[in-house]
Computed example of a mutant assay.
Amino acid sequence: MIASAQSLGRTMKMLQQDQLQAWEARFTHFYDAMLRGWAVDLPYPGVKALTVVIETQDSESQTGFSRVTIRVSGINSVRFVDGPKTSYVRMSNGLYALFEQDQVGLEFGDFVDAPTSLSELMRSPVHAVGGTLEWDAQPMPNQ
């Protein structure tokens, strides 16, 4: 299990649709980021959630890089297929986020172009769709 920002005592920020453009710009759309952890929580009863940890560029970090924890809660679609000839650990194509009605979707680097709908996003072999998206960024130390 990966440690989430919540388990480390930090408060995660809720991402709203009107904040999406600035969030993506801050992390340079997660181009060439490194996916470091992926965990699905399936409590019964309870809210299903996906937590990912990504190391990426960060325009607000003193070191230029941060470890970003993203949590999608209320997931209704999640898929992670890392086949023998492909790998999504390095997110060369970045991360796409999309809000549609009361849902938010993330696509983790299979698409070259941004998806235009959640139904298109869910065709990706690496995606999550849920009700809310929370995040936290912690600066990475100089290497």
Rank of each mutant, 00 (worst) to 15 (best):
His29Glu: 13
Gln17Cys: 03
Gln62Pro: 04
Leu118Ile: 13
Tyr88Met: 10
Thr69Ser: 12
Gln103Met: 05
Pro125Cys: 02
Phe27Arg: 05
Val47Ile: 14
Met1Asp: 11
Ser73Met: 06
Gln16Met: 09
Val52Ser: 00
Thr86Trp: 11
Val129Tyr: 07
Val52Ile: 09
Arg10Cys: 11
Met1His: 12
Asn93Ser: 08
Val78Arg: 13
Asn76Arg: 05
Phe65Met: 08
Arg10Ile: 00
Lys85Glu: 11
Ser4Pro: 01
Val68Lys: 14
Arg67Asn: 11
Tyr96Phe: 13
Val112Ala: 15
Met91His: 15
Phe80Ala: 13
Leu133Val: 02
Tyr44Ser: 15
Phe108Gln: 00
Glu120Pro: 00
Phe65Gln: 06
Leu106Gln: 02
Val104Ile: 15
Thr116Gly: 08
Val126Asp: 06
Arg123Met: 02
Gln21Pro: 00
Asp113Thr: 00
Asp110Met: 00
Ala97Thr: 15
Thr116Trp: 01
Pro43Asn: 11
Ala49Cys: 02
Asp82Pro: 10
Tyr96Met: 06
Ala25Thr: 11
Thr56Val: 03
Arg26Val: 12
Gly94His: 15
Leu118Tyr: 11
Val81Lys: 08
His127Val: 03
Val89Glu: 14
Arg79Cys: 12
Arg79Met: 08
Pro115Leu: 01
Asn76Leu: 12
Met14Val: 09
Arg10Ser: 08
Gln21Asp: 15
Leu15Pro: 05
Trp23Ser: 11
Ser73Lys: 04
Gln62Cys: 03
Asp18Cys: 01
Ile75Ser: 12
Ser61Lys: 03
Ala5Cys: 06
Glu55Pro: 00
Leu42Arg: 11
Val81Tyr: 08
Leu42Glu: 15
Arg79Leu: 08
Thr116Phe: 05
Gln62Asn: 02
Gln138Pro: 09
Ala128His: 05
Glu24Phe: 10
Leu20Arg: 15
Gly131Gln: 04
Glu134Ser: 10
